[in-house]
Design a protein around this nucleic acid. Structure first.
Lengths: 211, 211
DNA sequence: ATACAACTCCCCCGATTTCGCTATTTCAAA
DNA sequence: TTTGAAATAGCGAAATCGGGGGAGTTGTAT
């Protein structure tokens, strides 16, 4: 028996969900609320397995509520169900700790299956949502856009050591050349990066290039 | 009619898929291969809508093949189907550009539905896989661990401006104080960050803190 | 053979940075 | 009221840095 709680401000929808869960085999609806004002106290007492959470609600929104739930009851699985498919909502919901994210166009059977999935440790998602998630994933991972400034191999080494906080002398020692040679390299690094000091160069180097 | 191609080294499975696609309504299997050796030339000619890709195959594996496909034919949707649910495979598949990731335990109907979903621009995933994806997502995103070094507000401002490449004089001007004051601030910043130069401070500031 | 890029080195010089130490004012906490 | 942190400011000296110039050696490409 999967103990489910509902947070949904639309009265009709809320009661439909409640009925659906109470008539379906293997489910119980142990609470249906139109907002999150009493949520924490309620969860403390009844400890549902799965929370079906709407995003748009008066008072606290479903994403902040999810964050709150996961902070205090990490074992409760939160299934977001909403009409919003915006990247920002999806992103925030995931970060808040949502276990699933389905759109409201889903059929009753799909709802039940989604709740089962969540309860079994899965993360059901509408395929369209899943695509957004994958794309967000790739975006937030790839931004390795190492700009090229035509630095020569030696200049890269010097820049690397500069970033490590080494002085001209130390860099020279490390590369077995004269300090003046390092000065020359650094001059050309500066002109290639369009900067005029070590701090600027380091900032630029870290921000859009090699470590 | 969804034009699908299959890459799967298991003969029985490959032929089952082929039969399934050719008998189902709305699908055509326009090729079924046991490895990726001739893949690119094949895709060039037949241009399938969806590729059903196995991971474990002799020769090139399905993930590298996916990367190759997406590089040259970004419009082709690749649906990974495998017995492997390891995080590393999932991660690599996503980065390679896979549009979906389903496990081989899926039923025939689910296969067809997954292919439909992919073709419609969705990303079907087994709920268990989806959970892994969400967790990978959170992992690769959260490491925003802004270390605190007990810098005072003014010191933070100074550090910020230092990172921007400003000289002591300029910082002093910007904060309406004497240059010597900036000297003092920078001294305490250095001792708090345990560094001994501007470049080190900037590197540390960017790497594990503000800005 | 002649360029050209990359790497090397040297000198000069002024500006900037770094490291000492001291010291006052303000403001909030003890 | 005393204490302490934060911010302010100053002085001095050594070291480093940044910009300018010129110049020699490789090696590759034309």
């Amino acid at each position: 028996m999967i103990r489910t709680a509902i947070f949904e401000d639309n009265k009709h929808l809320r009661e439909t969900f409640e009925l659906m869960l109470n008539t379906a085999d293997g489910f119980t609806c142990i609470g249906a609320y139109s907002d999150c004002s009493e949520m924490m106290g309620y969860l403390e007492v009844f400890h549902p397995d799965v929370v079906l959470m709407d995003i748009e609600m008066p008072g606290m929104n479903g994403i902040d509520a999810t964050r709150l739930i996961k902070q205090h009851f990490p074992k409760i699985n939160v299934l977001i169900q909403t009409v919003f498919a915006e990247d920002e909502h999806i992103f925030n919901a995931i970060c808040a700790g949502a276990s699933g994210y389905i759109l409201k166009s889903t059929t009753p059977d799909d709802y039940l299956q989604a709740i089962r999935d969540v309860h079994a440790g899965g993360s059901p998602m509408t395929p369209g949502i899943a695509r957004r998630v994958l794309e967000l994933f790739r975006q937030n991972l790839q931004p390795a856009a190492p700009k090229e400034y035509n630095l020569t191999p030696q200049e890269k080494k010097v820049l690397q050591l500069l970033v490590d906080g080494k002085s001209y002398k130390l860099i020279a020692a490390e590369l077995f050349v004269a300090t003046d040679t390092i000065k020359t390299h650094i001059s050309s690094i500066y002109s290639k990066l369009h900067v005029h000091s070590g701090t600027e160069a380091v900032a630029k180097a870290i921000r859009d290039k090699i470590v």
